[in-house]
């Protein structure tokens, strides 16, 4: 088992024939992901990477039965693509594109919620269920199958965390890169209970960063609902206030959103908080027992 996606998940790609969309769709297929088609307006009826291309998401869903869409369209068109997916009855949209305006994402997410569509991202590496299904841009080979679920705002810290878990002799059930924009889809609050319910996930790695209060909300939820061990790292302990650290949402404003505040809240909720990302693997080995 795993969460959200597995070897049977049928995936379409919005922005299928573009440079990024093509490259990563091919990588995902090589990993084993069931990419059943894609959408590029005015290219409907053609074939790309051996899969059918459709003009609209509605056509793609009707013809392929896809439930998940991986979105690679340029930033200005992301909101439109997300809303189209929601309207067509897609269950989960994984938005890889970086640089979508916040106002657009606000509207798109509200619309997705109205249509019961889950979203991941934007500006994220995507989601991977080890050895089964990769929807995104992460290097698949790092994610060996195992019992550790991973949720991260940062792409490369997802890889760093997974790599350490694997080096300690453990593996990953599902890893989700949720992105670090001010408005994102699924976050800790929704994903932690999914991992709690997944019998094949025995421990959870949670990687956060400065800015916003998602980690604070997560701490509250962990205290109340999560029985599995959680290891957390919060990036940006050394970040100065008022400076945006790369991600649009990674900024300490006033006294809110600091790493310390988040680490304290998580520690109080019983989470094993590590001070350096270099200790994620060791901490997992500690909570799960050495292999």
């Amino acid at each position: 088992m795993s969460i959200l996606v597995n070897k049977d998940t049928k995936v379409i790609v919005q922005g299928f024939t573009g440079k990024e969309g093509s490259f990563h769709a091919e990588q995902c297929m090589a990993y084993g992901t069931k990419i059943v088609g894609g959408v590029t307006p005015n290219k409907g009826g053609t074939e790309h990477l051996g899969q059918p291309v459709f003009n609209t998401v509605k056509d793609a869903v009707a013809s392929t039965g896809a439930t998940v869409s991986m979105i690679f369209v340029p930033p200005a068109f992301v909101a439109d693509a997300v809303m189209e997916a929601a309207d067509a009855g897609i269950d989960l949209a994984v938005i890889i594109t970086e640089g979508a305006p916040v106002r657009d994402m606000q509207a798109a997410k509200a619309y997705a919620i109205k249509h019961n569509m889950k979203t991941i991202g934007p500006n994220c590496p995507g989601i991977i269920t080890a050895d089964e299904c990769k929807i995104g841009i992460m290097p698949g080979m790092i994610f060996k199958k195992g019992n550790v679920g991973l949720i991260s705002k940062s792409g490369t810290l997802t890889y760093e965390g997974a790599n350490q878990v694997v080096k300690e002799g453990f593996g990953i059930s599902t890893a989700v890169g949720i992105g670090g924009d001010p408005i994102i889809g699924l976050s800790y609050k929704q994903l932690l209970p999914m991992f709690e319910a997944d019998p094949d996930t025995h421990a959870i790695v949670m990687i956060g960063e400065i800015g916003g209060d998602l980690e604070i909300q997560a701490a509250k939820l962990i205290k109340e609902q999560i029985t599995k061990p959680v290891v957390a790292f919060i990036a940006g302990q050394t970040a100065p206030a008022g400076k945006r650290m790369g991600h649009a949402g990674a900024i300490i404003s006033g006294s809110a959103g600091t790493a310390k505040e988040k680490m304290d809240a998580l520690e109080a909720a019983g989470v094993r908080v590590v001070v350096s990302p270099a200790d994620i693997g060791k901490a997992i080995a500690e909570v799960l027992g050495k292999k």
Binding site: T238, H247, A250, P277
Partner: peptide
């Protein structure tokens, strides 16, 4: 010099920690 904002912050944190 790091790739990715999260890892870049994490690297700064690790340097500080050490």
């Amino acid at each position: 010099m790091v790739n990715g904002a999260g890892l870049a912050m994490g690297t700064m944190d690790t340097i500080n920690y050490m």
